[in-house]
Amino acid sequence: MTLSVRPVDARDSDEWAALYRGYRAFYRLPDDPAAVATTWTWVREGAHGLVGLVAVDERDRPVALANLRWFARPSTATTGLYLDDLFTSPDARGAGAAGMLLKHAAQLAAAGGASVVRWITTADNEVARSVYDAHAVATPWVTYDMKPSG
């Protein structure tokens, strides 16, 4: 399988949605067509600083996605690029799509003057972590989530 990486395009809607549903299912999120549609709109339009990339096969069919967004880093007075979502279709795994998307993210970050590309994953996501370990360094930071309250 020969792959390349490019920004998402309107023609990717159906394939992107299938990949994103696969991503959500992998992380045991409920099926939510509205969330998929909203995220597609954000990624496609660049809302919230989002950048959408896809790895495509020889037929220009998306087989993997990466959703990234720019963020401010006040402690260093720099910006970073955050990888929110990365997912490869099961039939394309092992072909290098994730690594290509990570390399493209690093190039995008450098071109945009970012000081880091950052992401999180679950501790037990061993297959993905083996790819991530080839491209980045795991940090000691622990992530917390707090519900908004009035």
Rank of each mutant, 00 (worst) to 15 (best):
D133K: 03
V63K: 03
V116W: 01
D12A: 10
R6K: 10
T88I: 05
L83C: 09
Y27T: 06
A136S: 03
R69S: 10
A77I: 06
A138C: 07
R118N: 10
W40A: 00
T39E: 01
L50V: 07
R21Y: 08
G52D: 01
A106C: 12
M146K: 13
L19C: 06
D32I: 03
K147N: 12
R93V: 03
P148V: 13
A25M: 04
H104G: 07
A72H: 11
V51S: 03
P33S: 06
A109L: 01
E15L: 12
T121K: 01
V36D: 01
D145E: 15
A110T: 11
T143H: 13
M1Y: 14
W16S: 00
W16V: 01
R61C: 12
S75T: 14
D85F: 02
L53W: 03
Y27S: 06
A10Y: 12
D145V: 12
G150I: 09
D14R: 15
A136M: 02
G94H: 06
P140A: 07
A110N: 09
T79W: 04
A64S: 11
R28A: 14
A47T: 11
G99V: 05
D57S: 09
D12M: 10
R129G: 02
Y27V: 04
R21S: 12
L102G: 00
D91C: 10
A95Q: 14
G150V: 13
S130Q: 11
T121F: 02
Y82H: 07
A10V: 15
S130N: 09
A106T: 10
P62Y: 06
A138R: 11
V56L: 11
T79E: 03
E58T: 15
A25Y: 05
S13I: 13
W42K: 15
V142R: 15
P30D: 04
A97Q: 06
R118S: 12
L101C: 03
A35H: 08
D12S: 10
G80N: 01
R73H: 12
A25L: 07
G52L: 03
L81S: 00
Y132Q: 02
E45K: 05
R73G: 08
G96K: 08
R6N: 09
R11Y: 12
L101D: 02
R59E: 14
A47F: 09
G80H: 00
V116M: 05
L108P: 02
F71V: 04
L102T: 02
V137G: 07
A134D: 09
E58W: 13
V8E: 03
H135M: 03
T78N: 05
H135V: 01
W42V: 10
G150T: 13
S89I: 04
I120T: 15
W40L: 01
R59M: 14
H48C: 05
A92V: 09
N125G: 04
V54P: 01
L68Q: 00
A92Q: 08
G150W: 11
K147M: 13
W119R: 00
E45R: 05
G99W: 02
T143Y: 12
A123W: 09
A47D: 13
D57G: 12
A106H: 11
